[in-house]
Amino acid sequence: MRFMMIVKATKDSEAGAMPSTELIEAMMRYNEELVNAGVLVAGDGLHPSSNAIRISYPEPGGKPKVIDGPFTEAKEMIAGFTMIEVKSREEAIEWALRMPDPHGFGEGQIELRQVFEAMDLTQDPELIAKEAALRERAERLKN
């Protein structure tokens, strides 16, 4: 099963402050550990929201509204993510607990979210196929 470890943004990350050398080194060691264990699938850090764009649909059926960053409420934003592939929820938690505190100053926060995959839902080929058919329909609607 796939999990996304989401590192929440803070005032510092939003201000574009670089993390300390110690933290960068600790993060690199941690990422290396994930790679060596064969569980890391993807991961990246994000720019602060000052160059972000938000698109919203305030009116149902209406035109989208495009707003440029920066945005307030750092806690509602994310600063980076790491995607891992593990056997269980507990394994995902265990790996997340091993991530260095991403910010310090009591502000560090990591959120774990499971990524939807047909294989997580079931090992029954019929149900997997149903899900595939559903997605196929969704894809067709998009095109």
């Binding site: 995959e117 047909a118 294989m119 595939a132 058919a133």
Partner: peptide, 22 residues
């Protein structure tokens, strides 16, 4: 291609017939 290898009846879908969007 794991997800695209079976159809709704659980039958295999050959590579050429798979939905590449998936």
């Amino acid at each position: 291609r794991f997800k695209t290898r079976v159809n709704a009846k659980g039958e295999p879908i050959l590579l050429m017939d798979q939905n590449r969007a998936l």
